[in-house]
Every structure is written in structure tokens, then in C-alpha cells.
């Protein structure tokens, strides 16, 4: 399956799962909102040009926004993490050219600790902006911090489960041979 087709299917699947499964879960607490959809952006290939990365993420966030009637909210957060994604990868990836040998960020291509840090940083930025925008219209500082921490925890758990359940085989490709 080509990368393009795979990502088109993922685009639709992540939106549908977020809207019709995770958003339908009865809320445990007002701070706990299960977000998983932005994992799509985390999984996009290394080789994608940065302009396309931004644009696809914007479109992806906007699609979710139309399902949730919040135009611009998730789009803003997705564009932000798409912009900082290349910097984070450059910081964390090993310098022997993993980003040339593997197609996309994963535990196999980056190693467990760097990949975990990569997920954590982007999750914090994504939720940070999302909850900050919500906090501006209503809520207190306790709301901001509490929701940021709780939601990040739940998201990390969900991502961890997704990575275990849907293990991505990352073929090692090299052009030295």
C-alpha cells in the first residue's frame, strides 16, 4: 500500500474514531477529555515537505472542527504541532540518519525514549494551545493546569495503547548498499 493511500485512510479513521468513539465516552470528570486524533500528524512521513505538513495538519484539524462545531480551535492546535514537529525530530533523532532510513517517526526508527519525548512534547503543545484557547473564554487557572495535566495523561495512555495494538512495521531502507 502506498504512503498516500495509507495516510488518506488514516485521516478518515482518526477523525471517525475521535468523533464517534472517544467523544461518545461518558465524561469521567470535566478535566478528562480523551484526545487521540492528532496521532495522525505524529505518524506522517519524515519526507513530507514542511509546507505540506502544515497544510495537511490544518485541513485535518479543520475537519474535526466541523464535526465538533468549533471552527478553528483544533485547526490552530494541529497547525502548531505541525510547525514544531521538524524541530523536535531534529533534536531527538539519532544523528546516523534514521530519518533517511525509516519512513516515519516510531519506536523502531527513533528508539523508545526519544519517541516518547517526541510524543510528550507535541502532546503538551497541542493540549496547551487547545486548553489555553478554551481558558480564554471561560475558566480559571486551576482549570487550565488541571485539564492540561489530566488530558495529557489520558492522551499518552491512549497513544501507548494504540502503538501496542497497531504495531507499525517500519522497513529499514538504505541507499548505501
Amino acid at each position: 500500500m502506498s504512503d498516500l493511500l495509507k495516510n488518506i485512510i488514516r485521516f478518515a479513521l482518526f477523525i471517525l474514531v475521535q468523533v464517534f468513539v472517544l467523544n461518545q465516552v461518558p465524561p469521567l470528570h470535566r478535566f478528562v477529555v480523551p484526545y487521540l486524533y492528532y496521532l495522525f500528524i505524529l505518524w506522517l512521513p519524515f519526507t513530507l515537505p514542511r509546507v505540506w505538513l502544515s497544510f495537511i495538519s490544518f485541513l485535518f484539524g479543520l475537519t474535526l472542527d466541523y464535526f465538533m462545531n468549533t471552527p478553528g480551535l483544533h485547526a490552530a492546535a494541529c497547525t502548531l504541532i505541525a510547525y514544531i514537529r521538524p524541530f523536535t525530530i531534529n533534536l531527538l533523532i539519532s544523528q546516523d540518519g534514521s530519518d533517511k532510513n525509516y519512513p516515519s517517526p516510531s519506536v523502531t526508527s527513533m528508539g523508545f525514549a526519544p519517541y516518547g519525548t517526541y510524543v510528550l512534547i507535541l502532546t503538551l503543545f497541542h493540549h496547551g494551545l487547545l486548553i489555553f484557547l478554551e481558558w480564554m473564554s471561560f475558566g480559571s487557572f486551576l482549570f487550565f493546569i488541571g485539564k492540561l495535566l489530566a488530558t495529557t495523561g489520558v492522551s499518552l495512555l491512549l497513544i501507548f495503547l494504540t502503538e501496542l495494538l497497531f504495531f507499525r512495521k517500519e522497513p529499514f531502507r538504505t541507499n548505501t548498499a
Binding site: 490544518f58 484539524g61 471552527p71 478553528g72 480551535l73 490552530a76 497547525t79 502548531l80 505541525a82
Partner: peptide, 12 residues
């Protein structure tokens, strides 16, 4: 990036 971000905030 700035343009997209501004578009989304205006929409919001």
C-alpha cells in the same frame, strides 16, 4: 504557519 494560525483564530 502564521497565516494558517491566524486564519484558524479568526474563524474561532
Amino acid at each position: 504557519f502564521l497565516t494558517l494560525e491566524i486564519i484558524s483564530l479568526i474563524m474561532l
